[in-house]
Design a protein around this nucleic acid. Structure first.
Length: 820
RNA sequence: GCCGGGAUGGCGAAAGUGGUAGACGCGGCGGACUUAAAAUCCGCUGGCCUUCGGGCCGCGGGGGUUCGAAUCCCCCUCCCGGUACCA
């Protein structure tokens, strides 16, 4: 070793803040819209202002920043912004617990998080930062609401809502999870959700159900696409009407939805949801007591036991009958709580032979179970269980012999002809309920007037400001409703006294459009200017957790399409490429304050510096897999950065040796790192650079090295490492005699011809088992390789006494003797 | 139940198209430096057996295809995520 003069130690505590300040002063990451380079929009999901920045934020952001920096070195004009999702319940809950105002709590957190976030050295353009609770921002959230209202995409309607008693507000369907017993619980506080009929604001996301099923041209993970498709739950089938023979409640028929119209002739009963509007009038006098008791019991256990799929199929007969649309046979009308009012038509036809639930229901009640789709080798006997597979129609009059698939269409079309049904499509997706009976959100900009009805707040009056002095403790009613100063307002149309809408919007409305605002964050005339929108949108790459598959990511897609149809944007989709990173855990469990297993990044940054922490998070494993934070591993990255430091700064014995070996290692490293970073394989990218430093160190041990090749090697290493470890590489770039920021340099060019080795290791197998390895010149012929292999004692010993049947030859790789 | 994803050393993990399993790192062991420790550097590190040449076994389990399987096919177990009477 030739450390004649000692080099200064690697001191991240000194160098990291110094460089961050310098970049700040130089506005290194300020994005210029007029930059002629190709624009690239790289976005990571905006964090919620929870206050405590934990290592999970770093896990999400470090690789994103690395990719964004790499794209810049590729010559792109990269927009990489950050802001805060700031409205929402935790702010209120924390405020209640700490006796501070949600606004104060939120903005304190914004400040603290920004301070912490900045220690990462991420290349965010902070001049575009905002919080969704900024009046200047939610003014436009309200503007979007007005647009949606104007275009008939926002409406107020009575709906069976999911009410969370814990949060004191209604929730969207997507915000209700199932617990282990299958009971609906609040996504946030896990309280059991109650059903409540309420007048609420909704968005017509169902208008876009079919378009949302399309993912053409999107580079999205398959599992997310699948989850969205399942959530939409499109199923093709038929509507079938069963005439009642009289008019009840204005209806002369009951309509069911089915995916199996081919089984219509096997229908022996029908079942309505207990809440079905016709039930009361249908019920015969002698059945009334029983039916009402059943409805009452179903309502009581609502949502709770009713969700369990395993329990017995209960139900009661209404005493009423409908007529089979083809045969005219009497069909008993039952009610049962396994039929849901919210899906299809709230009524189903009972075909016990070909539906498992109907079979269970019918066999317990002695209802006929006629077979109408013949199972394979069917002998005409009755069935022991429901048969739901393919087959030909039987006992189905003119349809006998028809294949079930053809039968589905044929029956639907025949019903269409007689006016009793036809083909139709049903969806599981419901409209998105956005009203929230909470304080800390964007007020819905509507006014109710005695004479004018529901009136939108005029655009010029936006924002409808959230009053600071509201009593925000949750009661189930909107806190704003008790604020007289807020509620009372003159009707903008007639000037008479009106009342404001007092619900606020679901915070997912705020995150529906934040990616557009970054593009034009200071626009006072519009949420986003058309020109800048065309320049930057859609987002090229979006990274974030998979937990928003059917919430944020789904809503945002709907919103983009709505914005397009309202002629505000001209994109079909908000995110061209989506990448889901995994979750970082501690001791195998999700980090949470209540578990007390939150890893604070500040502690580790203080100990090793930001670059080490960034590298360690990326080195843990594949980004999409997530990982467990283990304190002991981080020292590896620290040691390695110290080795890089020394390698770059320690003088070498200059000469002319090993030039080829150094260049080969250099270009192999450049090739591997370039490849990995493009595929977001940050763990193997770092491993490749580590391998490279190991090689350089080994070469240096062997004596003098070619000065030019060595210099190229160190430059390449620093450039390749710059996106991942921005501080140390900037320092070393300067100390090794360069001028200008390393982060404004071009990514090193990979030269494949320099990376190629002149010899390769050829593996020699006998019957597929490794027996020897040969070092042979690249491009050695099979003949020469075989000759070399036959010189090997170990190979000969294995072939001895055997007959050679075949020789498998994979050039420059493998030679396999097949013998026995 | 259904739909996705996964299981590789003591640990985190590598292995684009079937072709040297365990790269890289942590931890461990041994050595150098030091009065000593830390730090750093060097060597070894999947298991079992070994006459020290090597041999056998090893990618959740069991079958199969193939000259050759972590990788392809079939069956099974377990773990994680989604969904759940959707007609």
């Amino acid at each position: 070793m030739t450390t004649a003069t000692p080099i200064p130690p690697y001191d991240p505590a000194e160098l990291e803040p110094r460089w961050r300040q310098r970049w700040d002063v130089d506005e290194l990451y300020r994005v210029d819209n007029d930059d002629p380079r190709e624009p690239y929009y790289f976005l990571t999901m905006l964090p919620y202002t929870s206050g405590d920045l934990h290592i999970g934020h770093w896990y999400a952001i470090s690789p994103s920043d690395t990719a964004a920096r790499w794209l810049r070195m590729q010559g792109k004009n990269v927009l990489f912004p950050l802001g805060y999702d700031a409205f929402g319940l935790p702010a209120e809950n924390a405020a209640i617990n700490n006796n501070t105002h949600p606004k104060q709590w939120t903005y304190n957190n914004v400040e603290a998080m920004t301070r912490q976030m900045k220690t990462m050295g991420a290349s965010f353009d902070w001049s575009r930062e905002f919080a969704t609770s900024d009046p200047e921002y939610y003014r436009w959230t309200q503007w979007w609401f007005l647009k949606l209202y104007e275009h008939g995409l926002a409406y107020r309607g009575s709906a069976d809502c999911n009410f969370c008693p814990g949060c004191g507000t209604v929730l969207a369907n997507e915000q209700v999870n199932r617990n282990d017993e299958g009971i609906g619980v609040c996504e946030r506080c896990e309280s059991i959700v109650e059903a409540k009929q309420m007048e609420q604001w909704m968005f017509r996301i169902t208008n876009y159900a079919d378009e949302l099923l399309e993912f053409d041209g999107l580079d999205w993970p398959e599992p997310i696409k699948l989850m969205q498709r399942n959530w939409i739950g499109r199923s093709e089938g038929a509507e079938i009407s069963f005439p009642l023979g009289r008019t009840i409640g204005g209806e002369d028929r009951i309509t069911v939805f089915t995916t199996r119209p081919d089984t219509l002739f096997g229908c022996t009963f029908m079942v309505l949801a207990p809440e079905h509007p016709l039930v009361a009038e249908l019920t015969s006098a002698d059945r009334r007591v029983e039916v009402e008791a059943y409805i009452e019991q179903a309502r009581r256990q609502n949502e709770i036991e009713r969700q369990s799929t395993k329990r017995e199929k209960t139900g009661v007969f209404t005493g009423a009958y409908a007529k089979h649309p083809f045969t005219g046979d009497d069909i008993q009308i039952w009610i049962a709580d396994y039929v849901l009012l919210t899906y299809g038509t709230g009524a189903v036809m009972g075909v016990p032979a070909h539906d498992e639930r109907d079979f269970a229901f019918a066999s317990e009640r002695g209802i006929d179970i006629p077979v109408v789709i013949a199972p394979p080798d069917w002998d005409g006997q009755s069935l022991a269980e429901a048969y739901t597979g393919p087959g030909r129609m039987v006992n189905s009059a003119q349809f006998d012999g028809t294949d079930w698939q053809d039968g589905k269409l044929a029956v639907a079309d025949a019903l269409d002809e007689i006016g009793l049904g036809g083909r139709t499509v049903s969806y599981r997706l419901r409209d998105w309920l956005i009203s929230r009976q909470r304080y800390w959100g964007a007020p819905i900009p509507m006014i109710y007037c005695e004479s004018c009805g529901t009136v939108p707040v005029p655009e010029d009056d936006l924002p409808v400001l959230l009053p600071d002095d509201a009593e925000f403790l949750p009661t189930g009613a909107s806190p704003l409703a008790r604020h007289e100063g807020f509620v009372n307002v003159d009707c903008p149309v007639c000037g008479e006294a009106g009342r404001r809408e007092t619900d606020t919007m679901d915070t997912f409305m705020c995150s529906n459009w934040y990616m557009y605002r970054y593009v034009d964050p200071h626009n006072h005339d519009a949420p986003i200017g058309a020109e800048l929108a065309d320049q930057w949108l859609p987002v090229d790459t979006y990274t974030g957790g998979a937990e928003h598959a059917v919430m944020h990511l789904f809503y945002a897609r709907f919103f983009a399409k709505a914005a397009r149809d309202m002629s505000v944007l001209s994109i079909d989709e908000p995110f061209a490429k989506l990448f889901n990173q995994g979750t970082i855990t501690k001791d195998g469990a999700k980090m949470s304050k209540s578990r007390g297993n939150v890893v604070n990044p500040d502690e580790w940054v203080g100990r090793y510096g930001a670059d080490t922490v960034r590298l360690y998070l990326m080195f843990l494993g594949p980004w999409e897999a997530g990982g467990d934070w283990d304190d002991s591993g981080i020292s590896g990255q620290w040691r390695w950065l110290n080795r890089v430091w020394n390698l770059a700064l320690e003088p070498v014995d200059s000469g002319t040796e090993h030039a080829d070996a150094i260049r080969r290692a250099t270009h192999r490293m450049i090739g591997k790192v370039s490849d990995d970073i493009a595929r977001f394989r940050f763990n193997t990218m770092i491993a490749a650079m580590m391998e490279f430093t190991n090689e350089l160190q080994a070469i240096r041990e062997q004596g003098t090295v070619d000065a030019a090749a060595w210099r190229e090697a160190i430059d390449a290493l620093l450039l390749c490492l710059a996106p991942s470890a921005p501080h140390i590489t900037e320092e070393l770039w300067q100390q090794t005699g360069h001028s200008g920021s390393i982060h404004e340099q071009r990514w090193p060019e990979f030269d494949e011809s320099l990376a190629r080795a002149e010899t390769v290791t050829v593996v020699v197998q006998v019957n597929g088992k490794l027996r020897d390895k040969l070092d042979l010149p690249l491009g050695t012929s099979q003949q020469d390789a075989e000759a070399a292999a036959r010189d090997s004692e170990r190979v000969l010993a294995q072939i001895a006494g055997k007959t050679l049947h075949r020789v498998i030859w994979v050039p420059d790789k493998l030679l396999n003797f097949v013998a026995n």
